[in-house]
Design a protein around this nucleic acid. Structure first.
Length: 485
RNA sequence: GUCAGGGUAGCUCAACGGUGGAGCAGCGCUUUCAUAAGGCGACGGCUGUGGGUUCGAAUCCCACCCCUGACACCA
């Protein structure tokens, strides 16, 4: 295993406030990144913002702002997530960064040299009522759903196309060479089926006169790149590609030793595991090592939507319950790869059961017994007895089974509660203090393990536990105050 | 419509050919170190429906019903 660890989230598009779905993605990535770092690997953890394209351009114009000023505001909002969720990303790339723009143009030139970019007339459907171009998926029975009485017009436009079709076999080869290229496996099956069904070339540019908010196509000032062609390139531009080849290869990897881990939602499966990989192959850049696909968070059993009024705002949850409470829910309650449902009732229920009554209370009772009886752990040596393999914890995190790994920690906490009940050191201390102190020491060691294993998941809580053990003080403020209803 | 995944205790899920399990919630008993927390226990399921294979099926096969996702230019 390489000593360098690279993980990247997808870049959220900045036309709306940060969504809880993205909070899930970035927290999952954070758990894996923090774990890698704990185990001594050098980590690049990348995230950022996707800032080009028609939707942003329109929104900026609507608000009477310069597009750059508009995206500056939004990029700042996304950086607030770093504090709210306590995520440890090392790189924050904005697709309007000059270096990214240069890298995207360089990438384009390489694909062009490979013979994979060509010009073609392309017919777009246009609704005169909306004054907008429409894609097939937006149409209902071949008509604009807003103006079903109007005929759609066909507009011919010359665009640059990417020769995606050329990469059908190379992609299928990639998937069969690396059966864990996409995790979970049923997502790999899904993408295999898609690619096997045949690939069509697609448009990767827009006419500048219609939509100027994009990266200029090298050598043709009439076109800008279509937004996601440029956005995907952030995963490598963030590493200093193409200038900094050394750092790039260390973290991104090489053709023989791919090292890049990507994480994305199920709606991004195709972009990440097929389109982006084909682009890399075209430009002669190594492919990723693995793409992790997570599910969606529903709310009250429904898709979140403004009209239903069931949108869960991560900032609101954090303000009310705390950062680690949300991180707990996202990592232990939420299935790592499948959809999960959020309701405030169940959130509070699991908070009380596992954080207040479970973990928090356990820390209080052990620290009280330890400090009251002067039993301290030789913490400088405590890590020697720390077993990362506890119940498969390390194995789970190395295979991104985040929920399973979290489960181990709470199982250990339960065992500690049972141990207290069985040994009753609080009672035995009156009759056989030596024996009781021995048990309290064992409990402190177990609490140390719990605190350490907790670090990737709930970094702040982990630090509070570790510090309490180091200073041997009782817990004055509960780690997680119980929520009473 | 086609393809994929799924329908198991009130809820979230595990068992994937051999006597249906866990956590949470609710119920009973119980300890006092602790955040009125902890521990123990009982209750709780014709495993979507109907057939079939088998000594034996939640587990394999067929049909049907229901849910979810994908079926390309949405970022």
């Amino acid at each position: 295993m390489s000593n360098k660890f690279y993980i990247t989230t997808t870049l959220p598009y900045v036309n709306a406030a940060p969504h809880i779905g993205f909070a899930l993605e970035i927290v999952q990535a954070d758990v894996l990144a923090r774990y890698a770092s704990l185990r001594g690997r050098e980590v690049v953890f990348n995230t950022g913002t996707d800032e080009h394209g028609l939707k942003i351009y329109r929104k900026a114009i609507e608000e009477g702002k310069d597009p750059q000023a508009y995206v500056d505001e939004y990029a700042a909002k996304f950086e607030r997530l770093k504090n709210a969720l306590n995520v440890s990303y090392t790189n924050f790339v904005r697709t309007t960064d000059p270096h990214h723009i240069k890298a995207a143009q360089d990438f384009w030139t390489r694909c062009e040299k490979a013979g994979d970019i060509y010009k073609k007339f392309y017919s777009v459907k246009y609704c005169v009522g909306c004054e907008l171009e429409k894609t097939d998926s937006e149409l209902v029975e071949g008509r604009c759903p807003v103006h079903p009485n109007l005929e759609l017009e066909a507009i011919e436009e010359e665009n640059y196309f990417f020769r995606f079709s050329k990469y059908q076999q190379p992609l299928l080869h990639l998937y069969s060479e690396h059966p864990d290229f996409v995790v979970p496996d049923y997502r790999l099956t899904e993408i295999k089926n898609f690619v096997s069904g045949g690939l069509q070339d697609f448009s990767i540019s827009r006419l500048k006169e219609k939509m100027p908010w994009g990266i200029p196509v090298p050598g043709d000032d009439k076109h800008v790149m279509y937004v996601w062609f440029d956005a995907l390139i952030n995963y490598i531009s963030t590493l200093g590609w193409p200038e900094n080849q050394k750092k790039f290869e260390e973290f991104w990897g090489t053709a023989g030793h791919p090292n890049a881990l990507q994480i994305a939602g199920k709606d991004n499966l195709r972009q990440q595991s097929a389109i982006w990989q084909a682009m890399l192959l075209s430009a002669g850049v190594p492919t990723s090592r693995q793409v992790l696909i997570h599910g969606f968070i529903t709310s009250e059993g429904e898709k979140m939507s403004k009209s239903l009024g069931n949108v869960v705002d991560p900032f609101v949850i954090v303000d009310k319950y705390g950062t680690d409470a949300l991180r707990y829910w996202l990592t232990r309650e939420m299935p790592t790869f499948n959809d999960g449902d959020f309701t405030i009732e169940r959130f509070e229920e699991s908070y009380n059961a596992s954080l207040a009554n479970g973990l928090g209370n356990l820390v209080s009772r052990i620290m009280k017994m330890a400090s009251a009886n002067g039993v301290g752990l030789d913490w400088e040596k405590a890590d020697e007895g720390l077993n990362w393999e506890t119940e498969g914890y390390a194995e789970y995190l190395e295979t991104a089974q985040i929920q399973q790994a979290a489960e181990i920690i709470w199982r250990e906490a339960r065992k500690a509660d049972q141990y207290i009940q069985e040994k009753e050191p609080f009672k035995v201390i009156k009759t056989d203090p030596e024996k009781a102190k021995k048990d309290i020491l064992i409990l402190l060691g177990e609490l140390w393990t719990i605190g350490r294993l907790l670090e990737p998941f709930l970094p702040e809580t982990s630090a509070r536990i570790i510090n309490a053990i180091k200073d041997n003080h009782e817990i004055s403020q509960p780690l997680f105050p119980r929520i009473s209803s």
